[in-house]
Amino acid sequence: MTDTIGLVGVILAAGWATTYVWRFVGVYIGQRMAPDSELLMWVRAVATALVSALVVRLLLVPPGMLGHTSLEARVVAMAAGVAGFYLFGRGIGAAVAVAAVSLFLVTWVFGA
């Protein structure tokens, strides 16, 4: 029981608070920005570039089980997903499925 309380304390202090502080700052700033302002356009560009970099890092440095696939397979599968998005009427669900199935097939055919 004390172990459980200790664990909750660790997660609250080192996990929740350290994450929420950035969300808190985000609300503070977000309340003071005019919608459609140029500053917000810049924030949009920053967030977009950041998530794009996150995806590329996951391709180059795959965490956990994703490492059981080759870099080539991951890049081809991601490209197939984006192509699928434009080919299949801009459906996100179908495109994501294309990406995952491509990863499976490429790895299955060519090996990890």
């Binding site: 994450t19 969300r23 700052v25 985000g26 700033i29 977000g30 996150l54």
Partner: peptide
Amino acid sequence: RLLPMVVLVIS
């Protein structure tokens, strides 16, 4: 990295 996303959503 959550900061810009929160700003955009809140606005």
